[in-house]
Design a protein around this nucleic acid. Structure first.
Lengths: 365, 365
DNA sequence: CACGAGCATGTTTACGTGAACATCGCGAGC
DNA sequence: GCTCGCGATGTTCACGTAAACATGCTCGTG
C-alpha cells in the first residue's frame, strides 16, 4: 500500500467532506459542488456549464472539454432539488402499499421500479402499516408533501371507495387491485379469468364440483376470485359448496384443509392463493388424503416454489411484472398528457399452469 | 345518485387542475399553490405564511387563523423541492438492491421503509436488474443525482470490494449482507451463528454428520453459512461431506435432493435457505426417503410458509425486520452526526425454530 | 471593405422557501 | 411626554438550475 498515493485510489470518501477541510465541523456547509463552482474553475459562465451538463448544442469543443474536466475534478453532480424546483417536477413516482412482503406486491413493485427507472423515474415507497382509512389518508397527505409526480396505489383494502379520499391535486394516480375503475385508472390481474380457468380445469377433469378457500374478505382480489368461482360452477349447473375462509396464509389453508379432509364428497379444491394451497397439501397429507388421487388442488399466483410443492402444484399464473409495467405506463401517460386520471380498468391476462396436484376423480367403487 | 350534488362529494379531482379552469390546456402552468398565493389571499407576507406553515412562534392568533384559512381554501401544500433546495437535504434514503422479490429483501425493505417513515424519511428504490459492476456503479451515479441523503445497499454480490467504487461524497452508506465491515458500516444477520445452530441441533440429535446445500457462490450470506457449517463439523470432529451447490431456488434444492437421496450415509441435511429445503423435501418424498425418519432437514430464513411444508420445517429464523431497523438507525446516525461512514459490522442474532423435519437418525439395524 | 447573419458565450431572472435583517407600532419607564 | 425595547410583521436574499434575452465576435457576401 502506498499511503501517499493519489487520493483517488482510496475508496474511502464515503459520506465525508469531499474536499477542503477534513471533517466538516458540524454545520451543513457547502457540501455539494454547484455549477457556479465548476464555472469558476473552467473559467466560463454557469450557463455554459448548464449547457454542457444537459448536452445542449452551441458549446464549442474546447470549451466543452474544459467544462467536463472541471466537472470531473470537482466531482460535480447536479442538484436534483434545484432541478425539480426549476422544472416543477420530480421525476419520481410514489408507491403506496400495504405489506411489501406479500407475494405479489414485491414482484409488482420490483417491476414498477425497473420500468420506472428505464423511463428516468425513481420510486418512492410509502408503506402503510395498518390499512385503516386514516393511515391511507395520511399516506396521501404525506405523498402530497413528498417529491412525487404521480402515485401508484397498491392496496387490497377498498378504502378508496370512502369517497372522502381526495387525492392531492396535480398528482396522477393508478390503482392496483381495486374495483374503482369507474373513478380511477385501474390496473389488475384478470382475477375472474384466472378463477374460471381453475374451475373449468377441474370440472373438465370430471370432478362433480369444486370447493373454494377464499382470501380475506377485505381483499378485492379474493372477492373477485370467489365470485368467478361461484359463477363458473353455476354456469356449469353444478352445486356450489360453501366457501371456506382463509387469510392468504399457509396456516389458514391448513385449517381449511383439515375441515375439507372430513368432507367425503370433496374431490377438488381451488385455493385463492398458493400459500393456502400449500396448507391444504399439508392437511391432506396428514389426514391421509392423497393428492391428486383422492383430492385435486389448484392454487393461484404461481409462486416460484409451487413447482416444488409435494406434489407440484397446478396453479393460475399471475404476471406481476406485466401489472407493474402497465402501472408505470399508466402514470407516465397521465403525466405526459397532463390531464386528469382517466378512469378505466386494464386487465392483465392469466394462464393455468398444470402440474401434478390435479387429476380426474377416483372412480367411485 | 344525485348527479348535481355539491362537487365536494365527487372524489374525482385526481391529477386534474385544482382550481381555475377545468383541464389545464396542456402547458405546465402554475399547478401548485405557493406561499405567495396564500399570502396574497390572506393579506400578509409570504414570510408570515412560512412561519405559520412551520409552526414558528411570533404570529398572533388572528393572523395565524387567516393564513390557515387561506391555506385550506387554496389547498396549499409545501413544495418539497424548494424545501430541499433551501435546506440542502431531502429527507430521503435511497435503497440499492438486486431482486426485491427475493425472500429476505422485501421484508428488509419493508422494515426500512416503515422505520424511515417514522423518522420522517422517505425511501427511494433503485433496483438493479443484473448485478454487474457497471450496473452497481450506474446505480450509485444515479443515486448521486437523485434526491437522497443516504444510501442503504442490499446486494449479495460483493461488488463494493472492487475498490474503484467511490460513493458520491456527502452520501452516507450502510451495507447489508457484505463483509466490507472494514470500510463500510455493515448490518447483517449473524449468518455464522445461524448455521452453527442448525449443525449443532442435528449433531445433538445424534447424526454422524450434516450435509449441506449452499446458495449461489456469489452470495456472501451463502458463503458464510457454508463456512460456519464446515467449521462446526470440524470442531465436533465430524467428517465434512462435499457441499452441494444450489442457487436459492426450490428447483435447485430439488436437484440436490435427488443426488442426496442416493447417498446412503446421508441422514441430515442443512439447506442454506427454506426454498431449497422445500426442494429437498420434494425430492426425498419422491425417492421414498421419509423426513424426518430417514433424513432430517433444516432450512434457513423461517419463511412464513415453512410451518406448512410437509413436514413442517425446522429452520433458522432470521429477523429481517430488525436488520431493516438497524439499517435506518445506522444511516440516520451518520446523517445526524454528519461525519463519515463508521466502518463496523452490526450482527443481528438468529434463533433455531424446531419443527417436524428433524429427528434422531433411524437406529441402524 | 463594410455590414449583417449566425453562433458561442454571458447576464438576468424566476422557481418556492425560509433565515437574516429591517421596520413598524405599542406599551412601559423615567 | 418622550424614548427605549420588544413583539409582530415585512423585505431582502440565497439556495442551484436553466430559460430567455443580451452581447460580442467571426465569417460570408455585396
Amino acid at each position: 500500500m502506498d499511503p501517499d498515493g493519489p487520493a483517488r485510489q482510496v475508496p474511502a470518501p464515503i459520506g465525508g467532506a469531499q474536499r477542503g477541510g477534513s471533517g466538516i465541523p458540524g454545520g451543513r456547509r457547502k457540501q455539494r459542488v454547484s455549477m457556479a463552482d465548476v464555472a469558476r474553475l473552467a473559467g466560463v459562465s454557469s450557463q455554459t456549464v448548464s449547457r454542457v451538463a444537459n448536452g445542449h448544442p452551441g458549446v464549442v469543443g474546447a470549451t466543452r472539454e474544459q467544462v467536463l474536466a472541471a466537472m470531473r475534478e470537482l466531482g460535480y453532480r447536479p442538484n436534483s432539488a434545484a432541478r425539480a424546483l426549476r422544472y416543477g417536477q420530480f421525476n419520481t413516482i410514489g408507491v403506496i402499499l400495504f405489506g411489501l412482503a406479500s407475494t405479489g406486491n414485491s414482484r409488482t413493485v420490483e417491476a414498477i421500479a425497473t420500468h420506472a427507472a428505464a423511463e428516468g423515474y425513481a420510486i418512492t415507497l410509502i408503506p402503510i402499516g395498518v390499512p385503516t382509512q386514516d393511515n391511507v389518508l395520511g399516506a396521501f397527505t404525506r405523498m402530497g408533501e413528498l417529491a412525487v409526480d404521480a402515485v401508484i396505489v397498491i392496496i387490497e383494502i377498498h378504502l378508496l371507495d370512502a369517497g372522502t379520499v381526495t387525492l392531492p391535486p396535480g398528482v396522477h394516480v393508478v390503482v392496483v387491485d381495486s374495483d374503482a375503475g369507474d373513478r380511477y385508472s385501474v390496473v389488475d390481474t384478470d382475477q375472474a379469468e384466472g378463477a374460471r380457468l381453475a374451475v373449468r380445469h377441474l370440472l373438465g377433469l370430471g370432478h362433480e364440483t369444486v370447493w373454494h378457500v377464499t382470501g380475506p374478505e377485505t381483499s378485492f382480489a379474493s372477492q373477485r376470485r370467489a365470485q368467478a368461482w361461484r359463477l363458473a360452477l353455476e354456469e356449469a349447473g353444478r352445486p356450489v359448496p360453501p366457501p371456506l375462509h382463509g387469510d392468504w396464509s399457509a396456516g389458514s389453508g391448513y385449517a381449511a384443509g383439515l375441515a375439507l379432509a372430513g368432507e367425503p364428497g370433496c374431490t377438488a379444491v381451488f385455493a385463492s392463493n398458493d400459500q393456502m394451497a400449500l396448507g391444504l397439501l399439508r392437511a391432506f397429507h396428514e389426514k391421509g388424503r392423497a393428492v391428486p388421487a383422492d383430492i385435486s388442488v389448484v392454487g393461484f399466483d404461481d409462486i416460484p416454489d409451487a413447482s416444488c410443492f409435494v406434489p407440484p402444484l397446478t396453479t393460475v399464473h399471475q404476471d406481476f411484472a406485466e401489472v407493474g409495467r402497465r402501472c408505470v405506463q399508466g402514470v407516465l401517460r397521465q403525466i405526459r398528457e397532463g390531464g386528469a386520471s382517466r378512469p378505466g380498468t386494464d386487465l392483465v391476462p392469466t394462464r393455468l399452469v398444470v402440474r401434478d396436484s390435479t387429476a380426474p376423480p377416483r372412480t367411485r367403487t
